[in-house]
Simulated assay, not measured.
Amino acid sequence: MSRVLFHTAVTLDGFLADPDDSLDWLFSVPGSVEAEADLTPFLDGVGAVVMGSTTYDWLWRHELRDAPERWPEFYAERPVFVFTGRELPRVPDADTLRFVSGEVSGLWPEIDAAAGDRDVWIVGGGDLVGQFADAGHLDQVRVSVAPVTLGAGRPLLPRRFGSERLTLESVRQSGQFAELTYSFR
Protein backbone atom coordinates (compact mmCIF):
# COMPACT_ATOMS: atom_id res chain seq x y z
CA MET A 1 0.00 0.00 0.00
CA SER A 2 1.23 3.48 -0.88
CA ARG A 3 2.06 6.10 1.73
CA VAL A 4 0.03 9.31 1.53
CA LEU A 5 2.03 12.49 2.02
CA PHE A 6 0.90 16.08 2.30
CA HIS A 7 3.85 18.28 1.34
CA THR A 8 3.23 22.00 1.01
CA ALA A 9 4.46 25.49 1.77
CA VAL A 10 2.71 27.60 4.35
CA THR A 11 3.06 31.08 5.81
CA LEU A 12 4.36 31.56 9.33
CA ASP A 13 0.78 32.23 10.45
CA GLY A 14 -0.49 28.99 8.90
CA PHE A 15 -2.01 29.87 5.53
CA LEU A 16 -1.64 28.05 2.20
CA ALA A 17 -2.96 30.97 0.17
CA ASP A 18 -4.30 34.46 0.75
CA PRO A 19 -8.07 35.16 0.87
CA ASP A 20 -8.10 35.44 -2.95
CA ASP A 21 -6.34 32.06 -3.33
CA SER A 22 -3.16 33.81 -4.46
CA LEU A 23 0.27 32.25 -3.95
CA ASP A 24 2.17 35.44 -4.76
CA TRP A 25 3.47 35.44 -1.18
CA LEU A 26 5.28 32.15 -1.87
CA PHE A 27 7.06 33.26 -5.03
CA SER A 28 8.25 36.48 -3.40
CA VAL A 29 10.28 34.67 -0.72
CA PRO A 30 14.01 34.95 -1.46
CA GLY A 31 15.40 31.49 -2.16
CA SER A 32 12.06 29.93 -3.13
CA VAL A 33 13.56 28.66 -6.41
CA GLU A 34 16.38 26.95 -4.52
CA ALA A 35 13.94 25.47 -2.02
CA GLU A 36 11.87 24.08 -4.90
CA ALA A 37 15.00 22.41 -6.30
CA ASP A 38 15.31 20.56 -2.97
CA LEU A 39 12.07 18.75 -3.84
CA THR A 40 13.69 16.48 -6.44
CA PRO A 41 14.32 13.49 -4.12
CA PHE A 42 10.78 13.78 -2.76
CA LEU A 43 9.25 13.97 -6.25
CA ASP A 44 11.18 10.90 -7.40
CA GLY A 45 9.24 8.87 -4.83
CA VAL A 46 5.80 10.05 -5.96
CA GLY A 47 3.67 7.67 -8.04
CA ALA A 48 0.36 9.56 -8.03
CA VAL A 49 -0.80 13.09 -7.27
CA VAL A 50 -4.02 14.21 -5.61
CA MET A 51 -5.31 17.78 -5.47
CA GLY A 52 -8.48 19.65 -4.75
CA SER A 53 -10.42 21.68 -7.27
CA THR A 54 -9.21 25.04 -5.91
CA THR A 55 -5.57 23.97 -6.36
CA TYR A 56 -6.25 22.74 -9.88
CA ASP A 57 -8.18 25.91 -10.68
CA TRP A 58 -5.20 28.00 -9.51
CA LEU A 59 -2.88 25.95 -11.75
CA TRP A 60 -5.26 26.43 -14.66
CA ARG A 61 -5.63 30.20 -14.21
CA HIS A 62 -1.95 30.93 -13.51
CA GLU A 63 -0.04 28.33 -15.50
CA LEU A 64 -2.18 26.53 -18.05
CA ARG A 65 -5.06 28.57 -19.47
CA ASP A 66 -2.90 30.47 -21.96
CA ALA A 67 -0.22 27.81 -22.32
CA PRO A 68 -1.60 24.30 -21.69
CA GLU A 69 1.68 22.87 -22.95
CA ARG A 70 3.03 23.96 -19.57
CA TRP A 71 1.28 20.99 -17.93
CA PRO A 72 4.33 20.24 -15.87
CA GLU A 73 6.36 17.28 -17.01
CA PHE A 74 6.10 15.99 -13.46
CA TYR A 75 2.31 15.75 -13.75
CA ALA A 76 2.40 14.35 -17.27
CA GLU A 77 4.38 11.35 -16.01
CA ARG A 78 2.02 10.46 -13.14
CA PRO A 79 -1.69 9.95 -12.63
CA VAL A 80 -3.26 13.13 -11.23
CA PHE A 81 -6.57 12.88 -9.40
CA VAL A 82 -8.46 16.16 -9.01
CA PHE A 83 -11.25 15.93 -6.43
CA THR A 84 -14.07 18.16 -7.57
CA GLY A 85 -17.80 18.55 -7.52
CA ARG A 86 -17.85 21.03 -10.39
CA GLU A 87 -16.88 21.27 -14.02
CA LEU A 88 -13.28 22.36 -14.56
CA PRO A 89 -11.38 23.09 -17.76
CA ARG A 90 -9.35 20.19 -19.02
CA VAL A 91 -5.73 20.39 -20.09
CA PRO A 92 -5.62 19.14 -23.71
CA ASP A 93 -3.67 15.90 -24.14
CA ALA A 94 -3.21 15.47 -20.39
CA ASP A 95 -3.83 11.73 -20.47
CA THR A 96 -2.91 11.24 -16.82
CA LEU A 97 -5.44 13.83 -15.56
CA ARG A 98 -8.53 12.38 -13.87
CA PHE A 99 -11.39 14.40 -12.39
CA VAL A 100 -13.05 12.44 -9.58
CA SER A 101 -15.77 13.04 -7.03
CA GLY A 102 -16.93 11.12 -4.03
CA GLU A 103 -15.56 9.84 -0.78
CA VAL A 104 -11.82 9.28 -0.38
CA SER A 105 -12.43 5.75 0.92
CA GLY A 106 -14.34 4.79 -2.23
CA LEU A 107 -11.64 6.20 -4.53
CA TRP A 108 -8.67 4.98 -2.50
CA PRO A 109 -8.22 1.59 -4.25
CA GLU A 110 -7.89 3.34 -7.64
CA ILE A 111 -5.48 5.96 -6.28
CA ASP A 112 -3.38 3.36 -4.47
CA ALA A 113 -3.18 1.16 -7.58
CA ALA A 114 -2.20 4.15 -9.73
CA ALA A 115 0.69 5.01 -7.39
CA GLY A 116 2.11 1.50 -7.67
CA ASP A 117 4.95 1.01 -5.22
CA ARG A 118 5.50 4.75 -4.77
CA ASP A 119 3.87 7.47 -2.66
CA VAL A 120 0.69 9.49 -3.15
CA TRP A 121 1.29 13.24 -2.86
CA ILE A 122 -1.58 15.48 -1.80
CA VAL A 123 -0.49 18.70 -3.49
CA GLY A 124 -3.08 21.02 -2.14
CA GLY A 125 -6.28 21.47 -0.38
CA GLY A 126 -6.22 21.53 3.40
CA ASP A 127 -9.79 20.27 3.47
CA LEU A 128 -8.88 17.42 1.12
CA VAL A 129 -6.01 16.47 3.42
CA GLY A 130 -8.53 16.35 6.25
CA GLN A 131 -10.73 14.01 4.21
CA PHE A 132 -7.77 11.67 3.66
CA ALA A 133 -7.00 11.79 7.40
CA ASP A 134 -10.65 11.08 8.26
CA ALA A 135 -10.56 8.05 5.93
CA GLY A 136 -7.37 6.73 7.56
CA HIS A 137 -5.20 7.47 4.50
CA LEU A 138 -2.70 10.08 5.65
CA ASP A 139 0.80 9.06 6.71
CA GLN A 140 2.90 12.20 6.71
CA VAL A 141 2.57 15.98 6.79
CA ARG A 142 5.60 17.90 5.53
CA VAL A 143 5.32 21.66 5.82
CA SER A 144 7.80 24.24 4.52
CA VAL A 145 7.21 27.34 6.62
CA ALA A 146 7.96 30.63 4.85
CA PRO A 147 8.93 33.89 6.58
CA VAL A 148 5.68 35.58 5.54
CA THR A 149 2.44 36.35 7.38
CA LEU A 150 -0.90 37.03 5.71
CA GLY A 151 -3.29 37.55 8.59
CA ALA A 152 -6.04 35.67 6.74
CA GLY A 153 -6.46 33.16 3.95
CA ARG A 154 -6.76 29.43 3.32
CA PRO A 155 -5.67 27.56 6.46
CA LEU A 156 -3.15 24.74 6.33
CA LEU A 157 -5.51 22.21 7.90
CA PRO A 158 -9.05 23.38 8.61
CA ARG A 159 -9.55 20.55 11.11
CA ARG A 160 -8.40 19.89 14.62
CA PHE A 161 -5.72 17.23 15.08
CA GLY A 162 -4.23 16.71 18.53
CA SER A 163 -0.60 16.00 19.30
CA GLU A 164 -1.48 12.33 19.84
CA ARG A 165 -1.92 12.07 16.04
CA LEU A 166 1.16 14.05 14.95
CA THR A 167 4.75 13.13 15.80
CA LEU A 168 7.63 15.39 14.79
CA GLU A 169 10.09 13.35 12.73
CA SER A 170 12.51 15.99 11.42
CA VAL A 171 13.30 19.68 11.06
CA ARG A 172 15.60 21.17 8.44
CA GLN A 173 16.35 24.48 6.80
CA SER A 174 16.02 25.02 3.06
CA GLY A 175 16.95 28.61 2.26
CA GLN A 176 14.46 30.86 4.07
CA PHE A 177 12.11 27.93 4.71
CA ALA A 178 11.92 25.71 7.79
CA GLU A 179 10.75 22.25 6.78
CA LEU A 180 8.86 20.32 9.46
CA THR A 181 8.03 16.67 8.89
CA TYR A 182 5.39 14.94 11.02
CA SER A 183 4.20 11.36 10.90
CA PHE A 184 0.43 11.12 11.17
CA ARG A 185 -1.56 8.49 13.08
Rank of each mutant, 00 (worst) to 15 (best):
D112W: 03
V123W: 06
A133E: 05
A94S: 12
S144D: 12
V120W: 06
A113E: 14
V148I: 13
A113M: 10
D134K: 14
L150N: 15
V100A: 06
G136I: 04
A115P: 10
V148Q: 04
P92V: 03
G125S: 12
G106K: 11
I122Y: 04
G151T: 11
G151D: 08
G130H: 11
L128S: 06
D134H: 08
V123P: 07
L128E: 00
A135T: 03
V129E: 03
S144T: 01
R98M: 04
T149C: 14
F132E: 08
Q140F: 05
G106S: 14
L138M: 05
V120P: 09
V143D: 02
D112M: 04
A135P: 09
V143G: 03
D139H: 01
D127V: 11
T96I: 01
A135G: 01
D112Y: 07
F99A: 11
I122F: 05
S144K: 10
P92E: 04
S105E: 15
D119A: 14
E110S: 15
D117T: 12
E103W: 00
Q131A: 14
F132Q: 09
L150H: 13
S105M: 02
G124Q: 06
D139M: 02
P147R: 12
F132Y: 04
D134S: 06
G125P: 05
S101K: 11
A113K: 15
F132M: 08
A146L: 10
P92L: 04
T149H: 09
E103N: 02
V145P: 08
T96L: 04
P92W: 06
V148A: 07
V129S: 01
R142T: 15
W121I: 10
A146H: 06
P109Y: 07
G116S: 05
I111F: 04
G151N: 07
F99C: 12
L97A: 10
D127F: 07
G116I: 06
A115F: 01
S105C: 03
G102T: 09
R142L: 08
A113P: 08
G126W: 02
Q131W: 07
